[in-house]
Design a protein around this nucleic acid. Structure first.
Lengths: 148, 148
DNA sequence: GCTATATCGTTTCATCTGAAACCAGTTGGA
DNA sequence: TCCAACTGGTTTCAGATGAAACGATATAGC
């Protein structure tokens, strides 16, 4: 009979570790900038490459279009993001950071990197590289089940 | 100015990988056995060591007591778990698998291990060991932020 | 061109989640 | 032996989530 110790079950460990990290990040962003993770992700991607539609943002952040829609609305509401008309398609808009949004990003990004550094403190660059590579492979091998 | 590519941000990658794996497992359990992940975790822990209270189960599964309460109620309702009185404390019960519950567990456990194997296919034992160790360290270094 | 179908984004709704209030039972201190 | 404070567990409530329905625009086939 197969026996299974929950603590040895990798999907469980992965989930616990990920939830802890997410909770840490979420509360830091919320406290420091009033941003939810979904909003922060949008800001980061828009900063990388302005002028994306929500659909493109959804792909880039792997988030549901509903989540993107709500996060974008919140950012526009707060004046961090502006919508420009999309000449080629009137259903969508191009999103870009406002000056305020850019300033916020310039403020948030270092904090994010610092948090990351804190969580992964004590890992050598080689270990981090290996970890990243494993996440890629896991993501790929679990993707088929995930409709998205 | 610090720049941050979302795709290079480890907490993000960790979250995506974990969510994919969880989604895969959740849908498999739901389809095969009608179990949610919280319910499955309870079954696994109760099988390991019967006669635990919900409070102990919460610690063992790192789940909220509300989640444990609901999962336990569902399992009792389905006749997979039975509550025995706890002689030392009438507020709580000792939970154990029924024969049906045990049979289900015997059925579920191999499938779980198989799914895990599929997701982590292509990883050497050494890689898996290293990965597990990194998850432990991440969990520990993110824990201080997490009130639980 | 005109209609059928597909797509972008928002809204609705049903579900899930955990914080806080709650009830029942337990414990410690006067 | 009381009663105040505490603990195990359930219920309530408010917020978050995503599937499905929707409105508006785009596109393809005729």
């Amino acid at each position: 009979m197969a026996t299974l110790k929950l603590d040895d079950f990798l999907p469980y460990r992965l989930s616990i570790a990920s939830n802890r990290v997410s909770a840490a990040i979420a509360s830091a962003y919320q406290a420091l900038f009033g941003l939810k993770i979904s909003e922060w992700r949008l800001v980061a991607v828009i900063a990388e490459g302005p002028g994306m539609t929500q659909q493109a943002l959804g792909l880039a952040t792997r988030m549901d279009k509903v989540t993107v829609s709500r996060a974008a609305a919140a950012l526009v509401e707060r004046g961090l993001v502006a919508r420009q008309p999309n000449p080629g398609d009137q259903r969508s808009h191009m999103l870009a950071l406002t000056a305020t949004g850019q300033a916020l990003y310039d403020d948030v990004a270092p904090k994010a990197l610092e948090l990351e550094a804190r969580v992964f403190a004590g890992f050598s660059p080689a270990e981090i590289k290996a970890f990243r590579a494993m996440l890629d492979r896991i993501e790929a091998s679990a993707a088929p089940f995930d409709p998205e």
